[in-house]
Amino acid sequence: MSNMLEVADLGHTYGDYEAIGGLTFTVRAGELVCVVGPSGCGKSTLLRTISGLIAPSRGDVSLKGSHLAVVFQDYQRSLFPWLTVQGNVEFPLRSLPRAERRARAAEALEWVGLSAAAKKRPWQLSGGMQQRVAIARALAFRPALLLMDEPFASVDAQTRFELEDLLLRVRREHDTTVLVVTHDIDESVYLGDRILVLSKSPAKLVADLEVPLPAERDQVTTRTDEAFVALRSRVARLLNVGGKPAVDVEKWAAAERESLSETVSS
């Protein structure tokens, strides 16, 4: 499989503060890779350098394909309030003829199940629906790479599960290459084909882990799967390198597994 994104010795420094300390990794076509790291580890800087919003101090980012799309955590601030949902999804497609723009936006809205809301304004929708609009906008752009910055961190737990499954479905249906930046260990294991674990700032690559789970995932059964629990614990331990773990991750995992199976059986 060819590489969609190649990052080589990427480093970034703000004044004296080194945010990223030399990262090398690749994302293959059609793959969903999660970047997970402690908060303040330079994940946002990584995302901004990959997306071209800031030029990195050193290293290379090369993208196969002409453009990428970003879905930000803060959907409320990332959607244009003066445009309709349809208008928001059409925003990146300005260079296309009107009819094609329309068609692509309608198609993308259908993928995320929002065809009925096309004429509404973003602020008339719930948080989860707004983030679906942002996802539709990114997909309509047909990016070589879909970058997501903590995409589900601002919605409630129920909506979060729905959006995670929606992401897994659309990226499977449309063979999208995705890079998700998150601080949530469970989310990284649930979504990812591969997980890149970063150290605290200056961010370095601690581990590059394959996720040994089937492509079809389910919020209840996957999260209780032995492989899921084991990988989650491993990532949690990796994130605490050099420091004492804040919680006994194994014990916590076991307790949660138990409570989850209780919920299911009742």
Partner: peptide
């Protein structure tokens, strides 16, 4: 003006005048 709106449009290839 929210910088995130500007970043969003820049990511989608909008220039300075745009």
């Amino acid at each position: 003006l929210d910088p995130l709106l500007v970043e969003t449009s820049r990511v989608f290839g909008t220039g300075r005048v745009g």
